[in-house]
Each structure stands twice: as structure tokens, then as C-alpha cells.
Design a protein around this nucleic acid. Structure first.
Lengths: 345, 345
DNA sequence: TTGAAAGCGTTACCAG
DNA sequence: CTGGTAACGCTTTCAA
């Protein structure tokens, strides 16, 4: 009980060599059914368990995949984890969690782990890359990395993402179709590509609808509830308050709704609000939030599947897969208020 | 570039043995400063990186810790992950994610990983144990497992938890202090210890306040928003609707609030609602939710610290650490409505 | 203080 | 098809 049985013990008991035991246990075609059975029986009798560490050392793999996020406590990642986990598990991989807290040094450490073989692949959701890391050296071939959620420009890596720009357009079109003409956008932090893409979508859709964007209609938050509240306050403290708000994520939309309510404005009667992400609470928020839904579990699944392809070298050309988003109309958006405009034309 | 340098290469370049290289690199006291420097220099020049797999095989450790939850997409776990991660990282451990989806077979697999040395320890948050698993055999000493969040009775394992019963009492006392006398409790699924503890707290506090609990005042949900909605509906469809609701978690509280609103009842003017957990959205919910807050990050940190103690055998007696909860009064609770009661005494 | 060598438990090559 | 044996890359006795 204290000593673990190893392949050598089985060999002795079954009267074969360790090589044969290894082959029998791994379903190699190079053993007769008879010996395979014999070995299996012995292994069972001895209560044998494979030593994964030894095996991994020998086969030069870790059978682990790194999942790197910038902030572990962002609920948005959860369902992505779930999708990744399901596929990884089925393929025999374990999941290693990485959390960078937006620290480039920590991000680099995870890349080190990849280089050092502590993980066979990585799903990166930080939106950044450690510059000039050895793993990214083009000389060493396609690195086993899939960038998910957040795009990284021109990095030659595989991507799984959504069409943020198109989704943003769809959100704005929805508001415009309800008769809104004064539509503001609460942006995410603009250094991030993601935020800029959504803002671009907003701008394009506004242009297409023939709507103007006043100078102050694009306040930028940081995706937090608090910043949504602040951006909303700024919009409604100004001269020309909007009748509709498109927030770059649901949390900022929540903040905005809170602020509107504080000011005695009703949602959606006075102001319509639309979010982005469809968090698990958005459906039951009050009012239930109209938002853009991303297929999160599917993004995770797809990213992991791509990663397996790359690891298995079944595919070497880095691809970008675009997932479909969906506009979920709930009750935070409604017809534009049709009170007469008193403002000067 | 293609071949990784190993300690053998360093040994050759530095003109010492591999044993010395190993010692020098691991700061052993058994080398002179001079040779240590020489080896270090050579290692740097050759761009040496330790092969963690080989090292782990040799030292018989995996330097990994399993974090097992019953449902990976529950946002409640996030900050616990964060706390665990911080401590694990500092101690040189990596985090392996485990997701059981309430499947005992999957849970057993993670225990297998522990037994097989794929992880050196485990933080278990499923509230269950695979019965009779070898790892739990008392003969093999204190297993490197810390049960967090959800208690498991009489298992002889280390625990990090909150006093659910006391916290529930506190919630009920708060409602009673506002003048409520008809206080109902939306329970979690009663097979779970956690749910029962919170319900017991509710019962004790009600008794102490001299309040009766009508037969239908303890509907049980499953911690989902939908179930909160359903339980609330059941309460208000019945004869004797409460003026205050204590939900066993925030999600059910959200569901209840949604249902109340649907019925035209105001929170907190007509009905007060209190939750449990203090999810990240609860603060900005509308109305901001009064709830019981658990020190989640701290629970994670503490659990991981305990685990390190057990792994390092610095402590062998399984302890239970109880963390402090806090009542967060926000705006979903208010004075009991003082309209005259028409119901028969 | 250093070196030689024996593992850690597998897998995979090469003969037979 | 099977067996012997050399790796995988490191740590750690045991001697010197």
C-alpha cells in the first residue's frame, strides 16, 4: 500500500518485459491479445496507476493548457472557461489557470511556462503580448497559442473572436429603429482594441443612420459599474442629453441605469439603455437588459479545439474564426420619447 | 536554439560536474561562492532554463494544486480563485482547474489525480466526497485537502468556512429590527448542508424574535434566479404573504425582486428583500441589495495557506477556520409597511 | 566542497 | 510480436 506499483512490478508478475507492459497498457498494436490480457490482469491485480509525471517527461509533453486572463475575477470569463474545460478534458488535457492582473511581467512568465514545456499550449485572453518573447519567434514555427476574446493585431496568431464592430452597429441600429436620434455611447478604455472596435461600430451605424455625434457623446469608462455611472452622469449633466445609451458592456449599462434612476429618469420610458455581453444577471436585471450576446461557451470550445489542432500540427496556418453574436431585446430599450423638442435646431 | 541546453551542457562549459551545477543553481550551501558564480555565468550564457518536468519527476512533486468546483460558471467562485491563485503563485504552485458538474465520477477523477501525484494538494468546493476513495484512507495520513465554502461533515478534513447559521440569524435579525413579523425564507436545495445551515439560522432567529413560521414560508429553490422567482410567486400566491424575504443567496433574491416587481409590489416599500453572498452586481442592483457578504478573496487565501501547511507537514491536525461575514445594509430592505392587518388573529 | 553514479517511472529504439 | 536497454533531465546519496 505504501509503495506504488510500477510497470516493472507488472512485468515481473506477468512474466513479460517492461516494454511489453507499456505497449499492452497503451493499446499498442504490437502485442497479442493474449499478452495484453495477461498484462491487464496483472495491472489490475496490483492496482497499478500510471505515473503521469514520468510519462510526460518521457514523451516530452505536459498535457496541460494554460488559460491566461487579465483579471481572474471577471465573471465574463466563466463560461469561456467552461467551454475550454469541456474540450480540454475530452482530449486528456488539464487546465492551468493564469492571471496577469495586467502586469506584463506576469504575462511573460506564462509565456516562459509555455517555452519551458510546463504547458503544451495557451489560450490568451489578455489582449496583449510580451514583446519579443522567444515563444513568438517566427523561427520556431507557429506557437501553440490561440488568442480569444480580445484581438491582438498582426501577431500571426490564431484568433477566436466576435465581430465587435458589426455587433455594435446592430445595437445602434436597434436604437435607431425605435426612433432614437440622440444616441450616446459609453466606451470602454480606448487603449484597448476591443473598445475601439465597438466605438467604430457605433460611429459607422450613426453615420449610416444619418445621425450626428455631439462631441461629448462618447465618454470612456473602464468597463466597471462605477465608470458607467460616472459616464452617464456626465452625459446628463451636459446640455444635450441623449435619449438612448449604448454601453460597451453590461456592467457599465448597469451603472448607467442606476444613475438614471437616481436622477428620476425611467428606463426605458425616458431613456433606453443597451449593453454588451449578456452577463448572467442581465436577463433578470430590472429592467431586463437589452444587450448583445456572445456565444461564450462556444468561444471557449472553439478556441480549445483550434489549439488542439495547432498542437497536433493538424493545422499550421493561423486562422481567425469569427463567432456569431446576437441582439437580445429585453425591456431596457423602448420607443424614443416623443415629447416636442424645445432645443434650438 | 533548437536544442535546449541542459545542466550537462553547463557542466561542460563551466568545467564542473552536473551535481555541482544542480547545487549551484538551487542555492545549495554546498558550493563555494566562486563556483556558484561560475556556474551561474555559464547558465546565463547558454540561456539555460530548468526543465520543470524532469525536476518534478525526480523530487516526486508536481507543484500543482487542484481547485475543484461543482460548476465552473458560478461567479461566486471567482474571487476565491483569485485569493487561492495569489498564495499559490507566491509559493511556486500552479493552479489546476477542476469542474465536476455535480458528477461523482468526475469528482473521483480529481481525487485520482491527487493520488497519482498529478497534484500535490486540493481545494475542494463541491460539498461532497467520493466515498471510500483511497486518498481518504485514514491509514495514509492527513490527505492534502482543504474543504472550502461548503462543509463536509465528519470527514476529518481541514475546513475554511463561514458561520452560515450565525450569518442567517443576522439577516433575520436585521429584518425583525425593521419591524417585520412576516418573514419568509427562500431556501437553497435542502440536500445541501449549506442550505440547511442557513435555514436553521433563519429558524433560530425567528424563534428568538418570537415570530412564527407558517408552513409555506420556507420554499426551496436551487440557487438560480428562476427558482427565486418561482419561490416568490408561490409565497405571494398564498393566503398569508410575507412583508420580508430572506433569500439563501443573491441570485434567488434577484429573482424574487423581479417577481415582486412584476406583481406591482415595490422593494423595499411593500416588501423587503435580503440576499446572501454579495455578488459583484448586488451593489448596483436596483434597488441595491442588502445582503450578507463573505470575505471571498480571504477565504481563498486562507484555504491555500492551510493547504501549504498541510503539504509541508507543518501542521497535521485538520483544523476548521471560520471566516467573518458582514451584513451589508443597502436599499432593498426597509421598515415594515404599517398598514392595518385585516387578517383574522 | 566536489564528482560519479544511481535513480525517478516511463517510452521507444533496435535486435531478434 | 517481444525483450533489452538507452534515454527523458534532473537531484541526491555516497565517496573522495
Amino acid at each position: 500500500m505504501s509503495e506504488r506499483t510500477k510497470i516493472k512490478d507488472i512485468a515481473r508478475v506477468a512474466g513479460v518485459s517492461t516494454a511489453t507492459v507499456s505497449r499492452a497498457l497503451s493499446d499498442s498494436a504490437l502485442v497479442t491479445d493474449a499478452t495484453r490480457e495477461k498484462v491487464r490482469a496483472a495491472a489490475n491485480r496490483l492496482n497499478y496507476r500510471l505515473n503521469v509525471r514520468a510519462r510526460n517527461l518521457r514523451i516530452q509533453k505536459s498535457m496541460a493548457v494554460l488559460l491566461v486572463v487579465r483579471n481572474m475575477s471577471n465573471p465574463f470569463y466563466l463560461e469561456i472557461f467552461k467551454g475550454v474545460e469541456a474540450v480540454a478534458r475530452a482530449a486528456g488535457y488539464v487546465l492551468l489557470m493564469g492571471n496577469t492582473e495586467d502586469d506584463p511581467a506576469r504575462e511573460a512568465e506564462y509565456f516562459d511556462m509555455l517555452r519551458d514545456g510546463q504547458a503544451d499550449g495557451m489560450i490568451l485572453m489578455t489582449g496583449t503580448l510580451p514583446e519579443g518573447h522567444a515563444v513568438l519567434d517566427p523561427a520556431s514555427g507557429a506557437p501553440p497559442i490561440v488568442v480569444a476574446l480580445e484581438a491582438v493585431d498582426d501577431c500571426g496568431l490564431a484568433h477566436v473572436q466576435i465581430d465587435n464592430c458589426a455587433a455594435a452597429k446592430q445595437a445602434v441600429r436597434h436604437l435607431a429603429s425605435l426612433g432614437h436620434r440622440k444616441i450616446a455611447h459609453i466606451c470602454g478604455p480606448l487603449p484597448e482594441i476591443l473598445s475601439r472596435l465597438r466605438r467604430d461600430g457605433y460611429r459607422k451605424a450613426m453615420a449610416k443612420a444619418g445621425l450626428e455625434i455631439p462631441r461629448n457623446y462618447e465618454p470612456a469608462g473602464d468597463y466597471s459599474i462605477q465608470s458607467g455611472r460616472a459616464c452617464c452622469a456626465a452625459l446628463f449633466d451636459a446640455d444635450n442629453p441623449p435619449t438612448a445609451l449604448f454601453a460597451a458592456n453590461d456592467e457599465m449599462a448597469f451603472g448607467a441605469i442606476g444613475e438614471l434612476r437616481r436622477r428620476g429618469l425611467r428606463v426605458p420610458e425616458d431613456v433606453s439603455v443597451i449593453g454588451f455581453d449578456d452577463l448572467f444577471v442581465s436577463e433578470s436585471y430590472s429592467p431586463p437588459l437589452t444587450t448583445i450576446s456572445q456565444p461564450r461557451v462556444d468561444i471557449g470550445r472553439t478556441a480549445m479545439t483550434m489549439l488542439l489542432d495547432i498542437i497536433g500540427a493538424r493545422q499550421s496556418v493561423p486562422r481567425t474564426i469569427e463567432m456569431q453574436t446576437e441582439l437580445i431585446v429585453r425591456q431596457s430599450t423602448g420607443k424614443a420619447p416623443n415629447k416636442l423638442e424645445i432645443s434650438a435646431q
